[in-house]
Simulated assay, not measured.
Amino acid sequence: MSTESQRPDPLFNQSLEKGLEVLRAFNAVHRTLTLAELAELTGMTKSSAQRTVHTLERLGYVDKHPQTRRFRLTPKVMEIGYNYLAADALIPVASPYLSQLANASGETANLTEPVGLDMVYVAQLMTAKHVPVLTPVGMRIPMYCTSSGRAYLSTLPDEQVRAMLGASALVRRTPATLTDAEAIFERVVACRSVGYACNEEELFLGDMGVGAPIVNNRGVAVGAVHVSPPASRWTMAEAQKKLGPLVVECAWAISRSIGH
């Protein structure tokens, strides 16, 4: 590590970092937390966690349950995420094409964008058909085992793809999850020739994926579009044959329409 990278950043605000760590500590597993639990999850001292959560409580992002006295997030937290969605120029451009994809495929159409080693749902056009797995806007999914993630990776140089797979925790989410980096790399490379990537029950049982990358006018990937055909209605071969071309067409139309 260089001397430059070891130097403390004089502009880095540790108090803000702690506040964000507290907000991120709450999730589907930890819906409510005690002060001690917050300190343990964030690696803070109890006094530091107390000051941070008190500040967030005063600002309205956290409150305390009147009976259990455990801390929980408030709906005000959603303002931050909504502000991103409202400012994201890709969403209004993609929405009509997602609607067309949902109508043509009969399946829910999704728009995701990269964040680190994950893809995040930023828009979704649902159909009336049963969806076995709930994947709401804001949810993060790992790149290595999803169609949208592999589609995004397919636009990157081989060296960068291998580095990102090497940095990923290749966890077996289901019995079908590929965890061998070389095997995943081969799936990413295959996407370049056919235009779309697949995931067959690798993230959730009963849920598949067919996704294609969205690139801007400089050829840089900015996201991916995918549908999640359930195994109860589709075989992977049927999904590739019928949904693959629809997803590629949708991603191409969005790519052609964006100007950034």
Rank of each mutant, 00 (worst) to 15 (best):
S2P: 07
T3H: 12
S15W: 07
E17N: 09
E17M: 13
G19V: 03
L23V: 12
L23Y: 06
R24G: 08
N27C: 00
H30Y: 13
L38D: 08
A39M: 01
T42A: 11
M44F: 11
S48D: 14
Q50R: 07
L56G: 01
L56E: 00
G60I: 03
K64F: 03
P66M: 00
R69G: 05
F71S: 01
L73T: 11
M78P: 00
I80L: 09
Y82W: 02
Y82E: 07
D88K: 03
A89D: 11
L90K: 00
A104P: 03
S105W: 00
E107L: 06
T108D: 12
N110M: 14
L111Q: 04
T112G: 06
T112D: 10
D118V: 03
M119N: 07
Y121F: 14
Q124E: 14
L125S: 14
M126S: 15
A128S: 09
A128F: 11
H130R: 12
H130C: 10
V131G: 07
P132I: 12
V137I: 15
M139F: 06
P142L: 04
M143G: 08
Y144T: 08
S147G: 04
G149A: 03
G149W: 02
G149H: 02
R150Y: 00
A151V: 05
Y152T: 13
M164A: 04
A169L: 07
A169N: 09
E182F: 09
F185A: 02
A197I: 09
C198R: 04
C198F: 01
N199R: 09
N199Y: 01
E200D: 14
E202L: 10
G206Q: 01
R218V: 06
G219M: 06
V220P: 02
V220L: 13
A221Y: 07
G223H: 15
H226S: 15
V227W: 05
S228T: 15
S232R: 05
W234Y: 15
E238V: 03
E238P: 03
Q240K: 15
L243N: 06
G244P: 15
G244W: 14
L246F: 09
V247C: 06
S257M: 03
S257A: 14
G259H: 13
G259R: 12
